[in-house]
C-alpha cells in the first residue's frame, strides 16, 4: 500500500521557468525520500522530460510532486496533467525516436526507462495524465 508522506506540492507548468521549478521540487522530494544520487538524477531527468512535454505538447498543465512510502521503501511520485489534445497513438508515442514536435523522441520512452512506475492516461481532445514513481533502493 502506498501512502503519501507530508503534503503534495503543486506546480503549474505554463512557461520555461516552471520546468526548472518542477525539477527543483522533484530534487527536494528525492533528497527527502533518501534516493541515491544516481536515482535522484534519474527521476529529476524524467520529470524534466515530462514537464517539457506537458508544456510543449499539452499546452501547459501542472505537476504534483509528493514523497511516498509503501511500508518498505520511500520514493518520489510526480503526476503531470494537462488539458491538451491528448495522445492518439500511445504505443507510437512511447517508441524511441518517435516525435511529433521536432525533438529527439526520447521524452516519453526515455522517461519511462528512468523510473520504476509509469502510468499514462490519455484521451484525445481531453488531455493527458502521466504518473511516475521512483523508489529508493
Amino acid at each position: 500500500m502506498t501512502t503519501v508522506v507530508g503534503a503534495a506540492q503543486l506546480q503549474a507548468i505554463v512557461s520555461d521557468e516552471d520546468v526548472v521549478r518542477v525539477r527543483q521540487l522533484v530534487r527536494t522530494a528525492a533528497v527527502t525520500a533518501k534516493l541515491s544520487l544516481v536515482d535522484q538524477t534519474k527521476v529529476v531527468t524524467a520529470a524534466s522530460e515530462l514537464a517539457r512535454n506537458t508544456l510543449v505538447y499539452g499546452g501547459g498543465g501542472q505537476a504534483e510532486v509528493s514523497t511516498v512510502d509503501n511500508g518498505a521503501r520511500r520514493g518520489v511520485r510526480v503526476v503531470f496533467s494537462d488539458d491538451g489534445p491528448g495522445i492518439a497513438d500511445v504505443e507510437l508515442a512511447l517508441t524511441d525516436g518517435y516525435t511529433s514536435g521536432g525533438g529527439l523522441g526520447l521524452g516519453l520512452s526515455g522517461a519511462r526507462r528512468l523510473v520504476e512506475e509509469f502510468e499514462l492516461n490519455t484521451e484525445v481532445g481531453t488531455g493527458t495524465t502521466i504518473a511516475i514513481t521512483k523508489w529508493a533502493r
Binding site: V38, T41, K42, L104, L106, S109, G110, A111, R113, L114
Partner: peptide, 14 residues
C-alpha cells in the same frame, strides 16, 4: 560530465 548524469543519459538512450 558527472557520473550520475552519464548513467542517466545512457538509460535515457541519448
Amino acid at each position: 560530465m558527472r557520473p550520475a548524469v552519464a548513467i542517466t543519459l545512457v538509460e535515457l538512450g541519448l
